[in-house]
Design a binder for these strands. Structure first.
Ligand code: MN
Ligand code: MN
Ligand code: ZN
Ligand code: ZN
Lengths: 160, 160
DNA sequence: TTGAGAGTGGGAATCATTATCAATAAGGAG
DNA sequence: CTCCTTATTGATAATGATTCCCACTCTCAA
């Protein structure tokens, strides 16, 4: 959608205003970048993409905006263990969260989203959370589950 | 065990030699520190403790040794999301790994080890790993599961 | 249209971790 | 025990992601 703004950012526009924040060209550019990718971008990745749309935006603004979006739960922030954070727009399917986890390739850093076994997982986690909350008197607020390994391409290369 | 070395480090001594590495006073001190704590120490924590035993050891050696121990699978390295790595000796109970996960307090950083529901978890993870390996042709090598929330003390304080 | 103040950019600061390198010390051979 | 090779060390500099700072700019309700 060249020249325009995706519905994501339009929606966020209202969201920002509702919280008393302002919508700016930098924020729109960042949202557009996040909205038109399926990858898990780092702050620097986003900065480079934003730079194509709006060259005068700075790195500080990218970090600040990502921090704000995380706080508003509009983006998720992930750590895949390579020393830099990754960000992903919180895309909702029919009003409910798109709960998914990640397979991370320890060789090429490729990240695969998956939702398989999420039902079983949610069930186990619910049970675990309940048990742990009671036993340790600990109020669980969120969890992380990640698998690390080798993607098909890297696995093949390793065999040579 | 003042003046001596715990069996952990003696055992590791042989382990090192077997790999062609040398056992040094710094490495012994680091192992002793890890061996006599139940906490999840950062590199700096370890450095300070080591300094009490062997004041001339430097930070570089702490990092290098932890890196080596991680590679040899003698210690586990964790990221609890506060910007610094934590380390824990791989204590084995009767020859098998002590598989456990963590509850992390997002307020005071306290970490609780738990093994509850590990059987169910291992079962689910095994199933998930098998399914994901096949579907995405991805070779899973390890996983991370962590719960974040508020410990009893912080939960209480929050209510005031 | 305007003004209060939210937001910005660029450069400096922070801070955990790594890299460098001359000096040291582990440990096998003799 | 002594010697010699070289793995290891400690001090310090370098790195790199993220945060801080502050004078200037832009948003938007009135
Ligand atoms: Mn994802
Ligand atoms: Mn632990
Ligand atoms: Zn790969
Ligand atoms: Zn706490």
């Amino acid at each position: 959608m060249p020249g325009g703004f995706g519905k994501g950012s339009v929606w966020c526009h209202g969201r920002f205003r509702g919280y008393g924040y302002r919508m700016t060209v930098s924020r729109q550019a960042i949202l557009d970048v996040l909205n038109t990718t399926v990858k898990h971008l780092s702050a620097e990745d986003i900065y480079h993409e934003v730079h194509k749309i709006h060259p005068s935006s700075g790195m500080s603004t990218v970090y600040r905006t990502l921090e704000l979006l995380s706080r508003l739960k509009l983006v998720f922030k992930f750590d895949f263990g390579d020393g830099r954070a990754r960000y992903e727009l919180n895309k909702r399917l029919e009003n409910k969260e798109y709960h998914h986890h990640h397979l991370v390739c320890i060789n090429c850093q490729r990240v695969i989203d998956y939702t398989d076994f999420i039902e079983d997982e949610v069930e186990l986690l619910k049970k675990t959370e309940k048990g742990l909350s009671k036993k340790y008197n600990f109020k669980i607020m969120r969890h992380i589950l990640q698998f690390y390994g080798l993607c098909n391409r890297c696995e093949e290369k390793g065999k040579e």
